[in-house]
Design a protein around this nucleic acid. Structure first.
Lengths: 148, 148
DNA sequence: CTGCTGAGTTGGATAATCCAACTCAGTGGC
DNA sequence: GCCACTGAGTTGGATTATCCAACTCAGCAG
């Protein structure tokens, strides 16, 4: 948060919540159903101290919820709130991009959509349903920092 | 890259390239047309040394391209490659999520789609065009780390 | 000769991350 | 009762990364 004169922007705001290292990988695991601390630690490869810190901030930000699944012994699991579930398209978009431009070889993870096809996400305009992409949109209002 | 037993995954691979602080904000500015170093520094609010480092890694990763726009004096600009442009849906997804769950008040940045409507992105299945979301997809193959 | 712009570097302080080992509470085995 | 084990973290110390202001260097502009 260097924050004095930077552009006011929901991308930056979003990244302030989920943009730190491990946050999105934690969310990936939670959405995959890996909801216990040790499972998250094993699957992400992150060290336990920062994972604990991230889980705290994600819970505080309302992205995850910490739910006890047993008293005596006290045990909890982390589940995605509505806000956390709403990040699934972002994760799938990153996966799609990673599959295409980063990962060597075939995609390590493959999903099937309810329609039966192998899942690949596309970003479309919510109003008309046609693709969103370079040259298909125009800036109406831009937050902070005057621009050309 | 703690990397020994973590899940093999294109989300993690993608984040290894664009998941560090400032990377996606740099890309935001470049896609907005803010392609000069000083402009990026001003609009993101990041310090010049890490921005220089990030620009180097983004160029090395093929997300941005460093192009001279003048010799004598030597000046360059950064432009998004195809790979960089392919990240636009991810940025718009983050913006959408930030607008809804993080930013207080009205969205600071507003786009208009070529169809005339205010732009809101939706993630859909590329094959059938219907929404992607909770419960609408099934795991076919999962990289690394055995799971329930 | 001095100052300005663009595109970064450099140095030093501060903060975040990594890693292994440790804690603590409750169970299960013997 | 004693030992080991599981789940969910903490703690300490070393290593990196980030922040910030100030500096460089080249080519003009006055």
């Amino acid at each position: 948060m260097t924050g004095s004169s930077a552009r006011e922007c929901s991308i930056a705001n979003a990244l302030a919540v989920v943009g730190e290292r491990w946050s999105l990988l934690i969310l990936r695991e939670v959405l995959l159903g890996n909801v216990r601390f040790d499972a998250i630690a094993a699957a992400t490869g992150g060290s336990r101290d920062i994972l604990a810190a991230r889980l705290r901030t994600l819970v505080a930000a309302g992205v995850l919820e910490k739910r006890p699944y047993s008293e005596q012994p006290r045990r909890h699991e982390y589940v995605a709130t509505e806000s956390g579930q709403a990040l699934q398209p972002v994760l799938l978009g990153l996966m799609e991009w990673g599959d295409r431009y980063v990962t060597q070889g075939p995609p390590p993870t493959v999903w099937e959509h309810s329609c039966g096809a192998e899942l690949h996400v596309a970003a479309v305009c919510a109003a008309c349903g046609s693709p969103v992409g370079a040259g298909r949109s125009r800036l109406v209002r831009l937050g902070g920092v005057d621009q050309d």
